[in-house]
Amino acid sequence: MLAQQDAFEAERNARMVKAVYVYEAPLRLWHWINALAITLLAITGYFIGKPLPSLAGDTSTQYLMGWIRFIHFAAAYVFAIGFLGRIYWAIVGNHHARQIFLLPIFNARWWSEVFYELRWYLFMVREPKKYVGHNPLAQLMMFLFFTIGAVYMILTGFALYGEGLGEGSWADTMFGWVIAALGGNSLQVHNMHRLGMWVTLCFVIVHIYAAIREDIMSRQSLISTMISGWRMFKD
């Protein structure tokens, strides 16, 4: 439904107009805050498991691990609250805002466009299509790796956080079951949370590459769209 609407809109608009307003301000703001939060989370998270070289000197004047963990938790709150805000925006925003939460999996045309995009990335077709919102392949990837990934990182992250806050704390009450559900040994949850960081990193590599590549290669703007909100068509 969405894709059809998209495609319809694209076809109608692209012929006549050169620019469409796609991403509203709250969504764009969220995108960049979220990107920053994830960057901080990945860096600090890496050093939580593999700490920096030991510091010498008076213990009472140092708090390196403390700060690293503090930044991780602060960024985690930004990430999690941002994600909640993003869900809210999916409800009240325009229909592009819903794309990363709802996949039109029963729509044959959408699937055929997913495969079209795949062929485009495999150099099997010469011409990319035009899309107002996300291209269907990007939408699928964002749903699988970002939306599901974010829920996974929030569930495992706050479960670990609840261990620090202690038994009976809000985080333990709301998320403590995650540890029990994953076998009960939080060492496992640490490892799985850490693995989640690498999955996120893989998504980010592909995502940034695709954004830059499509910005150059495709028939529409991308990076500037995520900054200004306007999708510009080049032909």
Binding site: K50, M197, W198, V199, C202, I205, M217
Partner: peptide, 29 residues
């Protein structure tokens, strides 16, 4: 194997894939 070995390898493969893809793209262009 641990999370870093598995994840690091995956990230390296993805990175190499992206670099190769970029090279092919540039060539085709």
């Amino acid at each position: 194997s641990n999370a870093d070995k598995v994840g690091g390898t995956a990230a390296a493969v993805v990175g190499a894939g992206v670099a190769a893809h970029a090279a092919v793209t540039a060539l085709a262009r």
